[in-house]
């Protein structure tokens, strides 16, 4: 049986090879708790995209994941540059990632669309020069 659990992760902004460790940890914990593979995958993919974004665009940040019997809530908070045009950023294929990020396999402009696709609710609060908070919910 799932209880209310909150997990907090500090995502480092300077080590791209380690990006995804937090999502990986959440994935294995959910699996252990007996959450269905489909739901685990939804959470893992959306959190992983968010985690990658944090590393690429915002020098890291903090991710809080709350697991409750009916939903999984992910809050990704960074103190990065903010998103100037959220609507544009949500368009599939639109990316502001630099060329070196593309050579690392990201920056195809699918991150935010994927996060929206795999979650039941998604909200972005962003302020230029202050940071961005992305809240995502996956219903179980």
């Amino acid at each position: 049986m799932i209880n209310y659990i909150t997990l907090t992760y500090q995502v480092s902004g300077d080590d791209f090879t380690r990006a995804g460790e937090a999502s990986s940890d959440v994935k294995s914990k959910l699996k252990q708790m007996g959450v269905s593979p489909e739901m685990v995958r939804k959470v893992a993919i959306s959190m992983y995209e968010g985690e990658i974004n944090m590393v690429i665009h915002a020098h890291g940040g903090i991710i809080k994941v709350t697991i409750s019997p009916h939903e999984i809530l992910m809050v990704l908070e960074d103190q990065g540059p903010g998103i100037p045009d959220v609507e544009k950023a949500m368009q599939a294929g639109y990316s502001t990632a630099p060329e070196n990020i593309r050579s690392l396999g990201f920056g195809a402009g699918m991150g935010l669309p994927n996060m929206k696709k795999y979650t039941d609710e998604m909200d972005i609060k962003t302020k230029i020069g202050v940071g961005t908070t992305v809240t995502m919910k996956v219903k179980l």
Binding site: F16, T17, R18, A19, G20, S23, S24, R41, I45, Y48, E49, I52, R102, L104, G105, F106, G107, A108, G109, M110, G111, P113, N114, K117
Partner: peptide, 26 residues
């Protein structure tokens, strides 16, 4: 491009990629 891969969900898949870094495994 890993986000293109992440946009596609199927069971028991194989991934072909020229990206050879940790994020391909992740």
């Amino acid at each position: 491009m890993m986000s293109d891969v992440l946009a596609f969900v199927k069971d028991q898949s194989v991934l072909l990629t020229g990206l050879c870094n940790m994020q391909a495994i992740r």
